[in-house]
Design a binder for these strands. Structure first.
Length: 372
DNA sequence: TTAGGGCTAAAG
DNA sequence: CTTTAGCCCTAA
């Protein structure tokens, strides 16, 4: 197509003649050594102009000719490697060799570009990686600091609580504190009793008794001088704390006057001695406990304080709410019996304070008595 | 993690 | 005192 437009044969001939003339003139001048700077510049400029024209007109022509002869099978592209080919193609003349070199140069250059790009992206990736690693390391340090602070805080608080207990119970060790609590008088100042005439205590005529009155009227049978039977006993000084759990439990297990009465009844009655000291609720002394808290959390508080005769203190029972039971039933329907962990994980909020073993035990009871 | 036996507080 | 229900322990 270009051949038609540019008439290469004619142009080529036109160019060749001045080039030859220029060449011979140059040779003459060089031979006679008569060339000066001025002349050399003129010749160089002329040569440049001609060379530029020649490239524009002949350069593409050469390529076209090469392409045509390649298609015709007269030549072979160097893409066919002489190493791979079983019949290496010889490069017949300088024109082919020149093209080959150009190709090689082009390939080399392209390869270098790609290599450079790869190296650049690798180093970029390495930089990103370094930054991320540094971030993670910083996070680890921060976490370790937080962990350390938390441990220290817990330790300090535990120490403060211990001292607090010791101050209130001079000469009382952690262990004997637990035993002494066994002899505590009833928590008769429970809020639920304070102003109610309606909750009749069947074991006792004076139904509207106040806590202090109760304490004096019903001293501990073992020893009336017992410091803990006195209203001034520190563990009795904080009705709010003691009542928290009792109130919570009363609310939890379908609160009713009869139940409250019954519960209070044991406090003054002959059965009291059978009640475990756990009932006294050491959690109340540990300020971190509240009515919302699970029993396990309370127990944790105790162990922190080292109160009680060992960490194997049995927990108070936490009754299952209807919601929990329904969720358990639904969970078994969904996941099947035995997948307690999954069921628990599906409802971590509702089952707060429960373990998978608790779920299993509850289901065992449901199966046993509700024939599920 | 689960199953099952045993213990015991809570309730009747 | 008995039963129930929740917790604990341990083997698999």
């Amino acid at each position: 197509m270009r051949g038609g437009l540019l008439q290469p044969a004619l142009e080529r001939k036109d160019l060749e003649r001045p080039l030859l003339e220029l060449k011979s003139e140059l040779r003459t001048l060089l031979g006679e050594k008569r060339v000066d700077a001025q002349q050399a510049k003129v010749i160089r400029d002329e040569f440049r102009t001609l060379a530029a024209k020649a490239w524009i007109l002949l350069g593409p022509l050469v390529l076209e000719e090469f392409a045509a002869s390649t298609i015709a099978g007269k030549r072979s592209l160097r893409a066919q490697s002489s190493v791979r080919s079983p019949h290496p193609v010889a490069i017949p003349d300088s024109e082919d060799r020149s093209f080959h070199d150009t190709q090689e140069t082009f390939v080399d250059r392209r390869f270098e570009q790609l290599e450079g790009a790869l190296r650049a992206s690798q180093s970029e990736l390495q930089n990103i990686l370094d930054v991320k690693i540094a971030e993670v390391k910083r996070s680890v340090v921060v976490l370790e600091d937080a962990h350390h602070s938390l441990k220290k805080l817990v330790k300090d608080q535990a120490e403060v609580c211990k001292q607090h207990v010791r101050l209130k119970n001079p000469g009382t060790t952690s262990q004997c504190l637990g035993l002494s609590v066994l002899n505590l008088p009833p928590l008769a100042h429970a809020l639920g009793l304070e102003d109610d005439n309606m909750y009749e205590d069947k074991d006792r005529p004076s139904s509207n008794a106040h806590c202090f009155q109760l304490s004096s009227e019903y001293p501990h049978p073992s020893n009336s001088q017992d410091p803990y039977s006195s209203p001034s006993h520190p563990l009795l000084l904080d009705p709010g704390l003691h009542n928290t759990k009792e109130t919570a439990r009363a609310l939890e297990s379908s609160w009713s006057p009869s139940k409250i009465t019954g519960r209070v009844g044991f406090m003054h009655g002959g059965q009291r001695e059978k009640r475990p000291f756990q009932e006294i609720d050491l959690c109340g002394e540990v300020l971190i406990c509240n009515s919302e808290q699970t029993v396990r959390e309370c127990k944790h508080g105790e162990s922190l304080l080292g109160i009680g005769s060992g960490s194997t203190q049995r927990q108070t029972q936490k009754k299952w709410s209807n919601e929990e039971v329904e969720l358990l039933k639904r969970g078994v329907q969904e996941h099947g019996k035995g997948h307690w962990k999954k069921i628990l994980n599906d409802n971590t909020d509702a089952f707060r304070g429960r373990t998978e073993v608790d779920l299993k035990d509850k289901w065992r009871n449901l199966e046993k008595y509700e024939r599920l």
